[in-house]
């Protein structure tokens, strides 16, 4: 991206940031939601581990850490680009984005980036601290693991943004947009490794999943944090994560260019 494109992108990021500040009541509700999610899986895993000391090479404290790290970074990489696109189409606001001299995908991704940057400081960090205080969460495996985890978590944001942009564009071609988005939300929780560590899937599902972009959303950063993957393997996963992100962002551009011609603007 050249310097001319960066400046408007930063402005959109700033606006996204300010938008989030406006809804304070939701903040506490959001924190509680994440705590409950971690709590459910904490109890379930505790019960499972009662019968076997390790599951796919993970001990109970590691599994709890996997769950905790997963939900914590989800609070950061999560965005609603798909819902936002759907809303713009339904309310006829999409026209505004057609006349702007900035690329639509850039606007959407950086608007979400502004919100995620805001959440990282004021939402993800407190959630992570509270979870670490309430549940037996382990520190990162090493300094290198921590650094790779942080990089990977940021890439996760762009990967999710690229996916949501695509899903949003596909969903607006149907009439049951919200149904599709709800299904995507639940399916992605499973395929990303957030709810089930990807290595736990039976074959051939495991191999199929690892050949897809989905585990890179959550499994990759969490596995890096735990030191489950190190060295060349860690490098390979990080590369794949970045490659999928670039590929899906590119695909989003193509689909957007194609759907521009199909869009009928609603309203007078």
């Amino acid at each position: 991206m050249n310097a001319i494109a960066v400046r408007p992108a930063m402005s959109f990021a700033r606006i996204g940031f300010l938008n989030m500040l406006a809804y304070r009541a939701r903040y506490y509700v959001g924190v509680l939601t994440y705590l409950f999610n971690v709590a459910v899986y904490y109890f379930i895993w505790r019960a499972v581990f009662r019968h076997s000391p390790t599951v796919v090479g993970m001990t109970l404290p590691q599994m709890i850490t996997y769950v905790a790290v997963g939900w914590t970074i989800r609070s950061f990489y999560f965005n609603e680009i798909d819902r936002d696109i759907a809303g713009q189409v339904q309310e006829g606001r999409l026209a505004m984005n057609l006349i702007r001299p900035v690329n639509f995908q850039t606007v959407m991704v950086f608007d979400a980036a502004g919100q995620s940057a805001f959440r990282a400081a004021l939402f993800t960090l407190p959630i992570g601290i509270v979870i670490a205080l309430l549940f037996p969460v382990q520190p990162p495996a090493s300094i290198a693991a921590l650094l790779m985890f942080l990089v990977s978590a940021v890439v996760s944001f762009f990967l999710v943004a690229a996916l949501n942009f695509l899903v949003g564009l596909i969903a607006i071609r149907t009439k049951s947009i919200l149904g599709i988005l709800r299904a995507k939300y639940l399916v992605l929780e499973v395929l990303s490794g957030l709810i089930i560590p990807t290595t736990l899937f039976p074959q051939p599902f495991r191999s199929i999943l690892f050949a897809s972009p989905f585990p890179h959303i959550n499994y990759t950063p969490a596995a890096l944090y735990l030191g489950k993957v190190t060295g060349a393997e860690a490098g390979r996963l990080l590369f794949l994560q970045a490659a999928w992100t670039v590929l899906l962002l590119g695909l989003g551009q193509i689909v957007w260019r194609r759907s521009q011609h199909r869009i009928t603007i609603q309203g007078g």
Partner: peptide, 18 residues
């Protein structure tokens, strides 16, 4: 079908883990 995928996904945890 979308709704069924959602149900299947939430069921998947139980099926795979237990």
């Amino acid at each position: 079908i979308a709704s069924f995928l959602g149900t299947a996904a939430s069921f998947a945890f139980l099926l795979i883990v237990f």
